[in-house]
Amino acid sequence: MNDLNHSPDRDGLALPDFSDDELAAAAAAGDPDAFDELVGRSAPVVLRYIRRLVDDGQAAEDLAQETMLALWRGLPDFGFRSSVRTWLFGVAHRKVADYYRRRREVPTVDERFADLASVQPLPSDEAERSELVDALRSELRRLPPPSRAVWWLREVEGLSLAEIGQVTGLTNGSVRGHLQRSRSYLATRLAPWKPGAPSGTPPGDGAAAGADRDGRLKRREARLPEGGDR
């Protein structure tokens, strides 16, 4: 990218000042610098979305690359009936679905939260000694892929329910259902890390489990900076 693209023009506008949709339109018209700027913004977002759905890091990178190249190919015919971001997530989602289909691991929208009825407000074993972010990463992996995708698109990427429906191909009601159950699941599983969480024994937990949780909370408090929870 050359200096021209980041130099403010007479009105103080340079490529970083334009929206994704404006950049996409300019890229479609033949402005390669606009596409570079769009890739710089979108590639990290697409990669982290795909990484949430595909555990294999190399496969995720390959899928992200395919998604961005599909953006390039599709731009001339993109009608801007949706935002570029929604369109991009939709392409990424289909790439992931194809990936699982090829691996005969098709995640279906009918997957049930079989383990949700018995979840306890304890972090997963794998994450026991890790920070909240690691625990969250671990718990997200336990969610069925459609629920994971819905939660991520809503809470991290800020898409509307209708946009999530466009991306995932789910009905509005199904999107709501996945989102509600994901929220409940994550809030329960990650409760020990919640700022100001009480140290009482959770319902259904035995004394040993309660003591174990207390120990974890003490360890967590020890990790917090002075001043405690936010």
Partner: peptide, 30 residues
Amino acid sequence: TDAWLVEASRQLDEPTGDVARLIDAISTKL
């Protein structure tokens, strides 16, 4: 979703090196 959980999720960014490699690969193939 609780704000503290959403805040944590925003820290799940991919390593800078991975993103740079991805962008390089895209530029090479274009």
